[in-house]
Design a protein around this nucleic acid. Structure first.
Ligand SMILES: [Zn+2]
Ligand SMILES: [Zn+2]
Ligand SMILES: [Zn+2]
Ligand SMILES: [Zn+2]
Lengths: 132, 132
DNA sequence: ATAGATATGTTATAACATAACAATAAACGT
DNA sequence: ACGTTTATTGTTATGTTATAACATATCTAT
């Protein structure tokens, strides 16, 4: 938590871009948004993303190859979250309650597995889009 | 289920390659295995994979950009499976029990979401590797 | 036969991600 | 302040994953 506060310049820039956007962004979308701030190569984005993900301030959506700012300012239990992704409106809801961590703990126990990273993603249609 | 039996030539070839391998394979690994059978382009693999996934006979591992044959000969409830992936030995265990479908159903209900596709993946170290 | 549907082949290109190396800048003990 | 270490940034090139667009062939039903 002490380390979470100090972001490098590039990390700050990337996190700000993700924070302004409501939906997920690919690394290359982020790069394009930051060309005005001097970014020129994908690696600048990927390096910042790696750090931010390590801090729990950004999550990677595996099924989209995209990234999104943590909706909790920073996940305490890093990696224990589920993402509900609407394919119509691109809205992503992050769910981090006990049911998620209990399910994952149960699954790990049942398979005698030590999980270091987890990914739960649901793709479909959100309530708002379904009604519209 | 009636459609599941009739595979096209290319689908058969791709499924056989995946069936012979114990671990996950990328599309390009599959392509290389099938050059001897006349495959020349990635699209031949991707098209077959798309169909096989639709039939539930192959699963895509989002966190690996790789594919694996269904360990059940064909998942009845397509897409409702969890994958436990060892990063040391590459072994993948497919879990399809009620706890998985109940968890997903609960999550969907809680978020008023209609899920059409789901992905649950745990990355870490399996029991065998941990002991070794 | 022939029309429509399905499957396949081919080339090119888009989209996503990392390797390798060079240069700077910040942190730290002396 | 000083040199040493560590972290950060910049740059070029390349590797990896996936699809678009178009051409051809095969199958199926009438
Ligand atoms: Zn979070
Ligand atoms: Zn929606
Ligand atoms: Zn399966
Ligand atoms: Zn293992």
């Amino acid at each position: 938590m002490s380390e979470n506060c100090k972001l490098s310049n590039n990390e700050r820039l990337v996190l700000d871009v993700l924070g302004r956007e409501t939906g997920p962004m690919s690394a290359y979308m982020i790069l394009d948004k930051l060309r005005g701030s001097g970014f020129r190569a994908p690696l600048q984005v990927y390096r910042a993303l790696e750090k931010l993900i390590g801090m729990g301030r950004v999550h990677r959506l595996e099924s989209l190859n995209a990234f999104i700012a943590c909706s909790h300012m920073s996940c305490e239990k890093i990696g224990v979250a589920a993402f509900v992704i609407c394919e119509r409106c691109e809205h992503v809801q992050e769910v981090c309650d006990d049911s998620v961590s209990l399910f994952l703990a149960g699954l790990a126990e049942k398979t005698n597995f030590k999980a270091s990273k987890t990914s739960i993603e649901l793709r479909g249609v959100c309530d708002a889009c379904e009604k519209a």
